[in-house]
Structure formats: structure tokens, C-alpha cells
Amino acid sequence: MLFCIAVSLAYNAVMFRNAHPEPFRLAMMSAVVLPTILAGPLFVYLLLKLRDLRILNRELQIIAAHDGLTTLLNRRAFTERAEARLEAMATGDVPGALFLIDADFFKSINDRYGHATGDRALKAIALRLKECLRPGDIIGRLGGEEFGVLLPGVDRSAAMIVAERFCDSVASIRLTSLEGKLVPLSVSVGGVLFDAQDSFHALYQAADDRLYKAKASGRNRFVLANAVLRETVAERAEI
């Protein structure tokens, strides 16, 4: 607006430089008043549009970071946030645990009850897992029927309690198919405990190894390991 007023003043000063004082004064006044009247509403309009663009951009960022079905973080966003949290935790030697969680026999659920029921199962599992967590914990859907959870500041005992809670909470879901048949749900959990600086990739690989063992030994159970020794420290018996 100030730029427009300056241009208008310069233009009128040149155009009315030979005019009498009164017309010149009126011309200079109009050079200030007219741009102000015109630019005011335009300025407000542009501010509103910029606000709308900021809101839209924020909404797009949220959509881009979250899984459309479960509303959890998607794989990319989960990895980025987990890496950032691990880096922050490393400066204070904060312990924690990383879990990989896989829905048991999910392909059979899709084949037997249909993909619509499979989607409902994933949403129900995601909700139960989220209900087991604290506000500062990080959870995401890593793809298909696999989920990831980062628990900052937990020791072995607390991690075991959470893993047990994952299994019990999902197993208690009463999901029925479109035909009214009960759909049994359970999860296998692989976890890795850490108390020093470890890369997300290394922790992910260790947790994935434990998840494989949990599924190979019967499913509906959890297996935890130490990030350094890679030795099993807890294993839940099959329910």
C-alpha cells in the first residue's frame, strides 16, 4: 500500500506540477486517499487468502504424514519422528523400546471375510494399540498389517507390561464380519530395548528379528531383546 501511495504521489506531482496551489493540494490528497481506500480491502482480502493457504498447507501436511485408513502416522512420518526422538534421547542416555507389531493371520482374514472386514480389523487394532500408549509415545502403520511403536523412557519391566497389554487388548476385540461371524484377532510383537545411542535402522532390524521369532513360535505373543547383546530377555507364552 505504501508503494502504491508513493507511486501515486510521484505521478500526481509530475502531472500537476504547473497547476495552481489548490488543485495541486487536492491532487496530492487524492494520491494518498484513493490508494488507501482501494488498497485497504485488497490488503484484508489478501490476508484472508494467506490464512486460508496456511490452513490448507497444514491440512495437507497432516494428510501426507498419516495413514488414510487408521489415521496413524505413515511409515515415512513414523521413521522421521522416531529418528528425531532417538537423537534427542541419545544426549541424555534415555532408555526406551522399539516395537514392531504384526496382525496375525491377516491374509486369512481378508480371504475368508473380505477386505472390508480386513480394513475394519486394522482400524480396530490401531485404536487398541493407541489406547495402550502414553501421550508422548510414537505409533505408526508401517504398511499392510504391520505397526511400529517407540516408547521413550521405559525400562524392561515397563516395556514388558506394554507388550503384554498390546496382546491382551487386541485379543479382546469383538469384531464381527459382514455376515455376523466373529473374527478372531491377535498380534505378534517383536521389541528391542535400548539404553544408549542406537540408530533407528539397527533397532528396527533387532525388533524385526524378534517379531519373526514371535510369529515362528506360535503368534499371539511378544519377544523382547536387548539392543546390544541381542539376547532374548522376555517371551510371552502362547495364549
Rank of each mutant, 00 (worst) to 15 (best):
H66N: 10
G68E: 02
L129D: 06
L72W: 11
H115T: 13
A103H: 02
T71W: 03
E59T: 10
N110H: 13
G118I: 04
D119C: 08
H66S: 10
P95E: 08
I101R: 00
A103E: 07
A90N: 06
I109V: 06
L86T: 02
R112C: 13
S108D: 15
E80K: 07
E59S: 10
G96T: 14
A126T: 03
C132E: 03
I109K: 10
L86Y: 11
L69P: 02
R58V: 01
R81M: 04
S108M: 12
R75D: 04
E83Q: 13
A88Q: 15
A82Y: 03
D104Q: 11
R128Q: 13
D104E: 09
L129G: 01
F106A: 06
A77V: 07
A126D: 08
R75T: 01
Y113F: 11
T79C: 01
N110P: 05
S108A: 15
V94L: 08
A64E: 05
L100I: 03
R81Y: 09
I109R: 05
H115S: 14
A90H: 05
A64K: 12
L129V: 10
L73T: 00
N110C: 06
R134F: 02
A116G: 02
D102R: 06
R134A: 08
F99Q: 08
F99D: 06
E87R: 12
C132I: 04
N57T: 06
E83F: 02
I101Y: 08
Q61G: 03
A126R: 03
L73G: 01
L72I: 04
D102V: 09
D67I: 01
